[in-house]
Design a protein around this nucleic acid. Structure first.
Lengths: 159, 159
DNA sequence: GGGCTGACTTGCGTTTGCTGAAGTCAGCAG
DNA sequence: CTGCTGACTTCAGCAAACGCAAGTCAGCCC
């Protein structure tokens, strides 16, 4: 299997999955909305207050995220109230949990206050803190330089 | 240990690690530069060509990233050439590998072409594909809803 | 039917990120 | 000393993201 790094410029980056992912969840507020949604927030006002962006920005962002199928806009009704809508995570949205967790881990290490991290995620069963780590399908945990990069089936040759 | 989710609005999100991380690596081009740097790219021209942004944008982004200590600007000299500079990952930058990998995994699953992913990362020792997964410090692999959220030492009470 | 509330929308001005084209600058090769 | 090349910088100009303030709209409550 050829190492992509030795022939870097024969392959196009036009369909790179990292770039595609960034086109969908690349803005600061989208990520913060995902953080809140993964913590259980569902209502417009709660998103506005907890994420800390204005209402117009939030409305635009939520609309985009529903269109991108990260969130679903679901009608609900509390007794004695009229019908409203809440934003629930789809599977596509929920699967961003490792991304958000990796980002939080990194922020905890490299950008937290001296006091320490403001939020701790821990395993429900054993109480130990949760981290995003790299693993191969055979179950080996991977540290730094042990990764090979090769061209996949979706690669596109340049020009 | 209190569950943060039940008392969501008593805590400020001002010092959230996810938000802090996004302030540093939140832009599309910064992430794509990190992708390239983690694949081994070091020189200005190579970054410009492979990331696909213009020279002015690249120069600005690289300057920011050196200031943020993600990259280091190191002089080097090829025989018969004059001294130039290359951009090497710092430890802080290298530790974004789980974030980029999680993002690539997600893009492969939710935003790739029908043909499949353009790039495959595999474990050097066994050849199996690499994924970002969630694990607790006790070694348990975590699936979806098994995470508790609690306030950490750096939490800030609102107002 | 007038008020209240949650969920937006409209309007306007600012900042940030980017593009393209052109210019600069350092130093080795000839 | 002139040309060349890699690594930028400068100069418009554009589009997206965001903030603030104000307006709208849909019903249930009285």
């Amino acid at each position: 299997m050829e190492d992509l790094r030795e022939d870097r410029d024969s392959w196009s980056n036009a369909n790179c999955s990292v770039a595609r992912a960034m086109d969908i969840v690349g803005s600061r507020s989208t990520v913060l909305i995902m953080r809140e949604a993964l913590l259980g927030t569902r209502r417009f006002d709660d998103f506005v207050r907890r994420v800390g962006v204005g209402e117009p920005a939030m409305a635009a962002r939520l609309k985009e995220m529903v269109a991108a199928n990260l969130l679903e806009r679901i009608p609900y009704r509390e007794p004695g109230q009229r019908t409203r809508h809440e934003y629930q995570l789809t599977r596509k949205g929920r699967e961003l949990l490792p991304v958000i967790t990796a980002l939080r881990n990194w922020g905890d290490t490299w950008a937290a206050d001296d006091a320490g991290p403001p939020v701790i995620a821990s395993h429900h069963d054993c109480g130990q803190p949760v981290h995003a780590v790299l693993r191969c399908a055979a179950g080996h945990e991977i540290t730094d330089g042990e990764i090979d990069i090769s061209a996949g089936p979706g690669r596109i040759r340049r020009d």
